[in-house]
């Protein structure tokens, strides 16, 4: 996609379009960011701070809780993001078929989870997955398990539960982006392909996916950031502890605890925040790289 060099007038127009956003971002982000960068070099409690150089970074490498949170966050990211993206894409494509009946109903139903309040949804999930909850009862009746699974008491199953919960909540949300993007695709290309006898999977693979690529890239980056900042679910499901045994503790929850629950240690929590920034930087770069490679090949 080579673009001709912009002339001077166009270049100025480009700046004008982005100026309001840049001014606001400069106003509301530059100072906080510089501040938090500066804080990440401060050590001490509450308001008693002093310059500590790289002490916080050193502390990170020796902090078992941080390392656990980092590991958990990655586990959530690696398993959850692909599952959700694929599901959302499939739902969107299925619901974009104009011959499908009850489209409006299905669309609304699958969107509902992200509009349902966090309180209602975490309460329902917890009771469904309680030791004597409906999920265990069903699984036992089907003889899939011999004894009830302690979903929130077992480190492994707690992770599984969190992955299921976020997927449940955010699939419909991602689906919206795809549905909207699918409207921007020229239908006549599909028609032509169908008349030529191109099977559905091939239309999906060679028409839909390439045309949705910018939006797929967008949702992937957004979901990556969302997962790395995962807080709501784990905080609500585990009373803010990230238990059992820190098995669901995420970086975001750890930052919150360092800031508000533990002895206030803003310097250290700012350092952990910047770890997320660095991670997202690396991951987004990789995602863009993959997207670009495919484009050129």
């Amino acid at each position: 996609m080579a673009q001709a060099r912009l002339d001077r007038r166009e270049n100025i127009t480009g700046w004008v379009f982005i100026a309001p956003a840049l001014i606001l971002l400069g106003l509301f982000m530059i100072y906080p960011i510089v501040w938090s960068l500066w804080m990440s070099f401060q050590v001490g409690k509450g308001m008693n701070l002093s310059f500590g150089g790289f002490a916080n970074i050193l502390r990170l490498t020796k902090d078992p809780v941080f390392l656990r949170a980092l590991g958990n966050t990655f586990t959530f990211f690696i398993f959850q993001v692909p599952i959700m993206i694929v599901l959302a894409l499939l739902f969107a494509v299925a619901l974009n078929d104009s011959t499908l009946k009850f489209r409006g109903f299905f669309r609304t139903a699958i969107f509902l989870p992200c509009a349902t309040s966090l309180i209602a949804y975490s309460t329902v999930f917890k009771s469904m997955f309680a030791i004597d909850g409906v999920v265990n009862q069903t699984l036992m009746q089907l003889h899939l398990i011999g004894e009830p699974i302690s979903w929130l008491g077992d480190p492994f199953w707690a992770k599984v539960l969190i992955i299921m919960a976020i997927t449940w909540r955010w699939t419909g949300y991602n689906m919206i982006f795809y549905l909207a993007a699918l409207q921007n695709i020229d239908r006549s290309i599909y028609e032509a392909a169908r008349i030529d006898g191109v099977p559905a999977w091939a239309r999906f693979r060679y028409l839909t996916i390439p045309m949705l690529k910018p939006v797929i890239l967008f949702t992937t980056v957004i979901s990556t950031i969302g997962t790395l900042q995962l807080f709501d679910e784990v905080a609500n499901f585990t009373a803010g502890t990230g238990g059992p045994s820190d098995s669901t503790l995420t970086l975001s929850l750890y930052i919150y605890n360092l800031t508000f629950k533990f002895m206030p240690s803003f310097g250290y929590s700012a350092t952990v925040s910047w770890v997320i920034v660095v991670l997202v930087g690396i991951l987004s770069f990789l995602q863009f790289l993959i997207a670009r490679d495919r484009r050129t090949s």
């Binding site: 982000m29 501040w35 938090s36 900042q229 970086l251 925040s273």
Partner: peptide, 9 residues
């Protein structure tokens, strides 16, 4: 910048 946790700012 999108990825900076809000708590930090």
């Amino acid at each position: 910048l999108l990825s900076i946790p809000f708590a930090a700012m």
